[in-house]
Simulated assay, not measured.
Amino acid sequence: MSTAVWFITGASSGFGRLMTEFVLKKGGIVVATLRQPDVLAELKAQYPPEKLLILQLDVTKPEEIIDSFAKAEKAFGKIDVVFNNAGYALLAEVEGAPEDKARVMFDVNFWGATNVSKEALRFFREVNKPAGGRLLNVSSIVGITTVPALGYYNASKHALEGITETLASELDPEWNIKITLVEFGGFETRGRDSLVRAPPHAAYLKPSLASAASRSYLLNKNVRISGDAGKAIAKVYNLAQLEDPPLRLPLGNDAVTGFREKVAKILTDVDKYKSWSEGLAINS
């Protein structure tokens, strides 16, 4: 994978920036896409064009997605891995979230990620044939569980989970395309800096409420998130090299715990009420 071409969205900061730097240090080639290319001026000065191609891309604009993949093909002739990472969070109770802000976030986290996924699959199938490729969709433990005061962010990741799993189920194995949802737990990426905030809804001001605790935690910059993002990115890099990768990869002890608790709760409810489904068949 040292000479693999990685197409990375949201390369300006967080996991996208870390992955860009990691792949370059490993000797790989990166097509780094972001809304403001000047942010990567320092990296551009360190690496030649045959190693790093920086492209302006707003994932909410489908024509820019298509154009970016076309430029990557012209420059390198292939893309081996798409790290579909662009996204951000909206801090607001469901009742208090401004709908316009929630819709804009969905345009990035869901529609943007979905359109990147679709173009990646087309590229892997038609340009890379028969080599295929790897699509790594960046999700989160909140795509499986939820965090209060992040309702629309949770929902956008839940939606990404559903569309990604469906895409994976629709693939022809002959295309040699592998898809994985990377389910990050809590990692220190300074993602709180890009957090869009809405004021608390008047009905949710009670300090004992779960949403108030979430706000306090997320807005307290003195509280450092324990996960090492650099170590997590190294695991994602290794993931891209697996012959038979998982559909979902939870990363971080909190993510693993969250998965286990969610599955246990679902199974508990299923077992408790399974008798309700008996005798529902026609003519039973």
Rank of each mutant, 00 (worst) to 15 (best):
W111P: 02
S214L: 06
W6C: 07
E174C: 00
V23W: 07
S12K: 12
T257P: 00
E126P: 03
Q36M: 10
K231S: 12
L267A: 05
L43D: 13
K235H: 06
A159P: 06
Y47P: 05
L90S: 11
P207Q: 04
L219G: 00
E119D: 04
A281G: 12
T164A: 02
G252E: 04
A11L: 04
D271M: 12
A210H: 07
W175E: 07
R248I: 06
H158C: 04
V30E: 12
G258N: 08
A4V: 13
A232K: 02
A155F: 09
S216G: 15
L249V: 01
I144E: 13
D58E: 04
R17W: 12
E73S: 09
F124I: 09
N253E: 14
E188C: 05
P49S: 09
S156W: 01
S169Y: 14
L218G: 03
E99T: 13
V59E: 05
K26Q: 15
S208F: 05
K262E: 08
N220P: 08
L160D: 05
K178F: 07
T33P: 11
S156A: 14
H158G: 05
T164N: 09
I177Q: 01
G16L: 10
Y237F: 14
A92Y: 05
T20R: 07
R224D: 09
T257W: 02
V263P: 03
V138K: 00
S208D: 15
R190K: 15
F187E: 02
P245R: 07
F259L: 14
R103P: 03
D80W: 12
N154W: 01
P37D: 10
V138G: 02
G87N: 04
K61D: 14
K129Q: 12
R134N: 11
Y237W: 14
F124Y: 09
T60W: 08
G230F: 04
Q46N: 15
E21T: 15
I29V: 15
V82M: 01
E188R: 12
L136R: 08
E188M: 08
P245E: 04
A203Y: 08
T268E: 15
E278M: 10
P62F: 07
A102T: 10
E21W: 03
K206M: 11
G16S: 11
S156F: 10
I282F: 12
L91A: 07
K51I: 10
S211L: 00
A11M: 02
V147A: 04
K272P: 04
H201V: 02
T180Y: 11
F187W: 02
G151Y: 07
E170F: 02
E174I: 06
K25Q: 15
E50N: 15
T20S: 14
